[in-house]
């Protein structure tokens, strides 16, 4: 564990807490893409297949459980909670994410560390996470003004993978033979997808204005 990876994990946890706060405090999920939440639930379930077979540390197991439980709880809220589900922007959240799932799985069948079920699903989860934010970014562009908590949620979600990139650079420099090409390249793509969001987020912070993404 290094400071970059810890910062990444804490930022990721923070993004989830901000999203839970937004849904709980406002009893609303307006501006949140359910499709992105569903993709993240798939990402965590596909990535943590080793949850009960490989014990790495209490921290590792605890965080995996938090990520799986929170993503499923958020999807459940957005689908079945009688109050929250009414504020779902159904007509705006129309990104056809089936292609993202299919393409990620196809790529995982081709490019993986080892051709085993666990490794193919791990690579699938890495590729899928890289594109999972797309429905959310599309929804933000369509829904015009973005409430503060939603903006902070997306910001922290993008920032966590940037910390992981620093972590991979650090490990590459300090650990012999450390390579994480699949996660590294996907992580760069994932963070790059946030580039324009980060730009408009910075502008709104500098001008102290409402966050607005151009349509």
């Amino acid at each position: 564990m290094n400071i970059f990876r810890l910062a990444g994990d804490m930022t990721h946890l923070l993004s989830i807490l901000v999203l839970l706060l937004k849904i709980y405090a406002t009893k609303s999920c307006s501006g949140i893409s359910r499709k992105t939440q569903e993709l993240y639930a798939i990402v965590f379930m596909a990535r943590y297949l080793d949850l009960f077979t490989d014990f790495i540390s209490v921290y590792n197991t605890f965080m995996k459980l938090i990520f799986i439980a929170s993503s499923l709880a958020i999807v459940w809220c957005m689908r079945f909670h009688p109050v929250v589900r009414r504020s779902y922007d159904r007509e705006l959240d129309t990104f056809r994410y089936f292609f993202l799932v299919g393409a990620s799985f196809a790529l995982a069948l081709v490019w993986h560390d080892k051709f085993t079920l666990q490794e193919v699903f791990w690579a699938f989860s890495i590729y899928l996470e890289a594109v999972a934010i797309l429905p959310q970014l599309v929804l933000l562009q369509r829904s015009g003004n973005v409430d503060n908590l939603t903006g902070q949620y997306v910001f922290f979600l993008g920032a966590y993978r940037a910390f992981y990139i620093l972590n991979w650079i650090y490990r590459y420099m300090t650990e012999p033979r450390f390579t994480r090409w699949i996660a590294g390249i996907s992580g760069v793509v994932q963070t790059a997808l946030y580039a324009d969001f980060f730009y408009y987020y910075f502008i709104s912070w500098k001008n102290n204005s409402k966050l607005k993404l151009p349509a």
Partner: peptide, 10 residues
């Protein structure tokens, strides 16, 4: 090889 591509990250 086995140990260093061990998935220890989240």
């Amino acid at each position: 090889k086995e140990e260093d591509d061990f998935k220890d990250e989240l």
